[in-house]
Design a protein around this nucleic acid. Structure first.
Length: 827
RNA sequence: GCUCCCGUAGCCCAAUCGGCAGAGGCAGCGACCUUAAAAGUCGCUCAGUGCGGGUUCGAAUCCCGCCGGGAGCACCA
């Protein structure tokens, strides 16, 4: 044993030992009496080696998992790879190989780095989503949705990334740009597969109630906003002439959240790019409309999203009839109305909607105030009055407050059969088709006779054809379409020649169910073993970045609910608690190659060691906050580890009989264990580390200038330190454990038992204030009662001096820590 | 523009219920140790909690208004 702390030697010593011991196997024995706990880190995408972000996230997850192991739980802490996706495909094109080659090399590299990083995972459960044994079940999941009517193929204007050459789901378009590559997204009219997540909108909202308190509030808010529930009404507008006389065709339906403002509608707008606009335009107006539509189509999504650009539109030559007052409203086409929200058409109430007012002012249309809010006239100010108020000039609604007027308007419409209460959502169905190679093929066969025929389950997986290099070059249609042999297949239904679907699934489908697969990763009969899932799920603690606040987490919640409705799982929410760790940044900015402010994880580990890097991550601050690498000190972390390690080296006490040790050191040890435990369970890992540091300092003093290294309390303290430190610094802790004479692994030692008797302090300090100012400190027993405490406080000489003969007007007593004496005011 | 979160020492951050503003670390200074340096050990300096009000016996903590920083949403009818 070397006399000095030697990081390299310690790492080299223990890594092979752990490899041998496999300390983190989860037990699948149903009779195992230990409480079960499922700690899950969002699985990595294999893009090269691990980076600082992985190091942080997995350091956090590891604290939780290792703590549960030490507490004696049967812990499931798995890892795998989210290994389908575009980067592999792009690399394969450049290198002239199959994406699997690049993918597997990167996974091997990352796995090796994870081993060295000493994360506490059950390596026997690893899998990759690109393995046929896995994607077979992704395809099964798709078919499960298909059979329930939740997967359907339909034509629609979809988001198209010209750079990735594929369509994107709504969630994958951020401010008009591709979430992956940042290219400006355009629209295409395509027939694509959708999963009907909108069927679950209400449940996705409602079930967030059970996540409150254990998920970050901001993630819940983001999901709530994304789902975007609106309550209001559908209102039918009959087509009419300019006098309000009903003509053939129609009606046209709109959604509104303010049916109470129906009497204020002065015109009507249809999204220019909605089919309805082209259908309604009159021959006289067709030329103007066509010009306008072309202009709208030229504008990119990014331009359209600029909120304050001027309103434009054209008259369609048609009128609709206001169902309540019979007036004729001119119909316009405009691009401020969205084709795919609500019905793609609106009734315009310029007095009480800013967008409508802007449009009305641009085209010189009338403004009618129908809600009195106390604010000035919108027609003059240009500011719509959107607040609630009292209905005016609104026929039977007049005089009603907004809430009542809304109800009354809906009743009125329902009575006449021209409207009904309704709820709409911002959430759209999940577009899952991708025109790329490296994903799970959609298991559908298109038969000229039978239509869309699901691949029989016995024929799964539909394997990817072996394509590589330039065969994968994106051409706007799936590369699978060029694999003629693969493509042609007999219809499972009628046996006639048919073709496979050539698209692959969004990789977010792969990751929407992987947490179920970890329970029975080798099962070749089913996607997951329901009994095993019942034992392990829901996930006790999920750890991952906030960038998945909507995407992955929403999809996973959705598919879990689908599986629950299939009777395959018994819960609706897969992740009971969520921790969003922050990012590692440098000098206030996200690390990026182009900015040249990268910190290389491998270099940091080489310079300071695995433990110091992990400790730096965990100690830097609250886990959910970003870590600026310029603000932290891995060398300081390494110094601390060395200090702690030397304690173990210096202990000379024989094992056993801690109760004969120094009492105050024992109190410090037990108090620290209790506080560390509290900090860990509260996810305040930085505080837990600080408490351990404090104890290390205390023990150093005990060895050098206190009871000395032979005192049993010193051994007890150092053993506790080794165990607690193993959460963050497994190598150092293992070496300390070994120096104390224990066999590895420290990770499976027992969390130190706290002796409650040692937490009770014999004496506490009571502060005595006079008129809020501290005048004295008393040493009192912790169980002191009010009477005794006030007696002692008033008897104190300093207090007497401060009172200066004044009487006591009021006594505030909070035993045992505080007495506040309010003197009588001399009048 | 709307909503939410956060402002504590030179820096990163603690402070269960409203009860002594400071646990831990970084940086700095000093002493000891050392042939010397590094390492190590010990000690010290440093804020009254962004600003202004309010509630309270008592506010970093609760309320209101500003200032600064961050995040989310942003034609969703």
């Amino acid at each position: 044993m070397e006399p000095h702390f030697d990081v390299e030697a310690i790492q080299a010593r223990w890594l092979p030992v752990w490899e041998d011991l496999q300390p983190f196997r989860a037990s699948d024995d149903p009779a195992d009496p230990r409480p079960r706990c499922y700690v899950l880190d969002m699985f990595p995408y294999p893009s090269g080696d691990l980076h600082m972000g992985h190091a942080e996230a997995f350091a956090m997850g590891d604290v939780i998992a290792r703590y549960r192991f030490l507490k004696g739980d049967n812990v499931l802490h798995p890892i795998g790879w989210d290994s389908f996706g575009l980067p592999a495909e792009n690399a394969a094109i450049v290198r002239g190989e199959n994406p699997a080659a690049w993918t597997h090399r990167n996974i091997a590299t990352q796995a090796e780095s994870f081993r060295r990083y000493a994360i506490s995972v059950d390596w026997s459960r690893r899998f990759n989503t690109s393995d046929p044994q896995y994607y077979r079940w992704t395809q099964w999941l798709f078919l499960t949705c298909f059979r329930r009517g939740l997967a359907e193929r339909r034509a629609s204007a979809v988001n198209w990334c010209p750079s990735c050459q594929t369509v994107l789901a709504n969630e994958q378009v951020v401010a008009g740009e591709c979430e992956r590559c940042g290219a400006a997204v355009t629209k295409r009219e395509l027939t694509q597969w959708y999963l009907r997540i909108t069927d679950y909108a209400e449940q996705l909202l409602d079930d967030m109630a059970e996540l409150r308190g254990t998920w970050p509030e901001r993630v819940l808010t983001m999901q709530r906003n994304w789902i975007g529930r609106s309550t209001g009404a559908y209102v039918d507008f009959a087509l009419c002439d300019d006098q309000g006389t009903i003509v053939d065709g129609g009606p046209v339906t709109v959604f509104t959240t303010r049916p109470d403002t129906l009497f204020g509608a002065t015109f009507f707008v249809i999204a220019a790019d909605a089919p309805l606009a082209s259908a309604l335009v009159t021959d006289e107006q067709r030329a103007a409309f066509t010009d306008y539509l072309a202009q709208v189509r030229r504008a990119s999504d990014i331009e359209r999203l600029a909120a304050d650009r001027p309103k434009t539109g054209v008259f369609l030559g048609r009128y609709v009839r206001n169902p309540l007052d019979g007036s004729a409203l001119p119909v316009y086409a405009a691009d401020y109305v969205l084709a795919d929200y609500g019905t793609g058409a609106i009734m315009a109430v310029p007095a009480h909607d800013q967008r409508d007012l802007d449009f009305a002012r641009a085209l010189d249309l009338p403004v009618r105030v129908v809600v009195e809010t106390g604010e000035p006239d919108p027609a003059h100010t240009g500011r719509a009055t959107v607040a609630e108020g009292v209905a005016v000039d609104s026929g039977p609604l007049t005089g009603l407050a907004t809430a009542a007027a809304i109800t009354a308007a809906i009743d009125l419409l329902a009575e006449r059969g021209t409207g009904r209460a309704a709820v709409t959502y911002r959430l759209r169905d999940w577009l899952i088709s991708r025109q790329r190679y490296w994903g799970a093929p959609i298991p559908i066969i298109h038969c000229p006779q039978c239509g869309e025929v699901p691949v029989p389950e016995a024929d799964l997986p539909v394997l990817l054809p072996d394509l590589s290099g330039e065969q994968l070059t994106p051409r706007g249609t799936s590369p699978l379409g060029a694999a003629v042999q693969w493509l042609s297949v007999a219809c499972p239904h009628c046996g006639e020649p048919a073709q496979r679907d050539t698209d692959t699934m969004d990789t977010f489908v792969d990751s929407a169910w992987y947490y179920l697969r970890y329970c029975s990763p080798q099962d070749d009969q089913q996607a997951f073993d329901p009994a095993a899932v019942r034992r392990w799920l829901p996930v006790t603690q999920y750890v991952g970045g906030v960038e998945h606040a909507i995407l992955h987490l929403l999809y996973s919640r959705f598919l879990t609910k689908v599986l629950r409705d299939c009777g395959l799982v018994e819960f609706g929410e897969p992740f009971r608690a969520l921790l969003n760790q922050g990012q590692v940044i440098l000098n206030g900015a996200a690390m990026s190659k182009s900015k040249g402010n990268m910190v290389d994880l491998g270099q940091q580990i080489d310079a300071y060691g695995v433990d110091a890097v992990r400790l730096t991550m965990v100690f830097a601050g609250p886990p959910e906050e970003d870590i600026d690498w310029a603000d932290v000190s891995p060398s300081g972390a390494k110094r601390f580890l060395a200090r702690a390690w030397r304690l173990a080296r210096d202990v000379t006490a024989e094992p056993g009989a801690p109760e004969r040790g120094d009492h105050s050191l024992r109190c410090a040890t037990h108090r620290t264990v209790a506080e560390v435990e509290q900090a860990i369970t509260g996810l305040r890992f930085n505080v837990a580390v600080a408490r351990i540091m404090e104890l290390v300092n205390t023990v150093r003093k005990a060895i050098d200038s206190g009871p000395g290294p032979a005192d049993p309390a010193v051994r007890e303290a150092v053993a506790a330190i080794a165990i607690m430190m193993s959460l963050v610094a497994p190598y150092t802790a293992e070496d300390m454990w070994s120096l104390l004479g224990h066999p590895p692994p420290v990770a499976r030692a027992e969390w130190p038992q706290v002796d409650p008797a040692l937490l009770v302090q014999r004496e506490v300090t009571c502060v005595v204030q006079v008129a809020g100012k501290v005048r004295a400190r008393l040493a009192v027993p912790p169980g002191i009662d009010e009477a005794e405490l006030s007696r002692r406080a008033l008897a104190d000489a300093a207090v007497e001096r401060a009172l200066a003969g004044r009487g006591v007007a009021r006594l505030i007593i909070r035993p045992p820590s505080l007495v506040n004496i309010l003197p009588e005011v001399a009048s």
